[in-house]
Design a protein around this nucleic acid. Structure first.
Lengths: 255, 255
DNA sequence: TATATCCGAGCTGTATACAAATGTTATATC
DNA sequence: GATATAACATTTGTATACAGCTCGGATATA
């Protein structure tokens, strides 16, 4: 039987011969991850308009392979392609937000039930590195640094998921919702957020050290709940569904 | 706030003006569903090679919009696009099969917990029509007719899912795995299968009539379990992972 | 000034020519 | 006959020209 065809996410390149020209799929993957990261770190906040021509120029290729990347991001719900306008980073309404977070909470618990991967020393040391980084950004107050932290924590977590479809779904739902959470960051107390992040990370490490995958996902689930609650409280407090608290102009265009 | 951007699946077209030219997205959706149905009904069984030029000719458009459809099917795991070869319908190995079915079982139970839709008379009458169709195909012995039955039952079920992301995921996982199950059909006892289908449908109707969504998904979950067990037993019996029991030639090419 | 209309810049959608990749088939060689 | 090699047909990947769409601003008019 041929090797299973999977969406080529989370795949390490062999990179044996640096002279070998990058394959079409590798380039697609690279550009896809680059743009997805920009969206997730709010370098491209919601309503940002991306022009295919601009991206094609930046990556020094024609519109065709760029369109493939953007269509993938569209299928995954991260951008909206509008004829005559451009490719727009999606916003997310409070109802969808809650739906995604609820689902993520349930799926997180599934990780420990569907043949999870073995917890290795590499996982633990990766987590300890994350813990150090968390402690070092109390003074930074950089939303982007915090976003990277969240993304990297997510990366460690999905590497524990044994079931391939569950891993893909978890990954997709994370990128669909996490960036919106970061939008709220400037409106909240920075030290509270970071200490919560520090606590989540260290509690996960503790669970990992006793090889307790069930404990790991329980911690994750709990902090997902905290995040959702925090957002709900904030929205109730303001009384409005105030999205995009960061930006002022209605549309940001990439130039 | 703008209306939420979602993958445009399961969307009824207004179709007010028959003279109005079909929009780009509508055509994409139509061709996508057409090809997905062919794959799910095994009109294009695993390893079928589709050529973009052929499909472009059939639908009387250029390769460009066809490629968009095929790439979407690729992202969803239904086809594998190979440079210099063609676009090949994916097979599925037994490990992935089990992973997908396990996940589907858990997600099915979630339907009743994440704000399901109200069960209406329309749902029930649609189900009763399906029950009639099921009873009428005992003599037909047509895998394709059975496949349509399964697809339509699935359609009713996902229309009960209130959470949009859960609905999309459930839909995707169904099409990823259901067609493989139908592959086994000719090797099993036809009357057993159809009577099981009849039972599943009528038990669902009973649960629907007492407005018991939890009961509906429990029935579904149980029959998913039965299917997985049946496949496992069959594979144990033959001792081999004998996929593609239907076809003989190694590659079927569309002409 | 207020309003409606038109026009054009800039974007995505489509078709198409060509480049690169792949598998097969014919052919040369031993 | 067996095997290695080269040529070829067919496919997907890419670049690009052009068509169609959208929106904002200029302009005409009351």
């Amino acid at each position: 039987m041929k090797e299973q065809t999977l969406i080529d996410s989370h795949q390490l390149k062999p990179c044996g011969d640096p002279l070998a020209r990058e394959s079409s799929n590798d380039r697609h993957q690279r550009i896809y991850q680059t743009i997805r990261e920009r969206i997730s770190l709010l370098q491209y906040p919601p309503h940002t308009v991306m022009a295919e021509t601009e991206l094609a120029g930046e990556f020094k290729i024609s519109r065709t392979p760029i369109r493939r990347v953007l269509q993938r991001l569209h299928f995954e719900g991260l951008v909206d392609i509008r004829n005559g306008v451009g490719t727009v980073v999606t916003d997310i309404d409070i109802k969808t937000m809650k739906e995604v977070y609820d689902l993520r909470m349930y799926l997180t618990e599934l990780i420990s039930e569907l043949s999870p991967c073995e917890i290795t020393g590499e996982h633990i040391s990766a987590m300890e590195a994350l813990l150090e980084r968390t402690r070092s950004i109390y003074d930074a107050r950089s939303s982007e640094a915090y976003g990277r932290l969240c993304n990297d924590l997510h990366e460690v977590l999905i590497s524990l998921i044994g079931s391939v479809p569950l891993r893909e779904i978890t990954d997709n739902l994370y990128y669909r919702s996490a960036r919106i959470w970061i939008t709220f960051l400037p409106s909240l107390d920075w030290n509270d957020i970071i200490s919560e992040q520090e606590l989540e990370t260290s509690e996960m490490i503790a669970a990992m050290k006793r090889n307790d995958i069930r404990g790991v996902v329980q911690v994750r689930r709990f902090y997902l709940h905290c995040t959702l609650t925090r957002i709900s409280d904030y929205l109730k407090g303001t009384g409005t569904i105030a999205f995009r608290p960061i930006r002022s102009s209605p549309v940001k265009r990439i130039r």
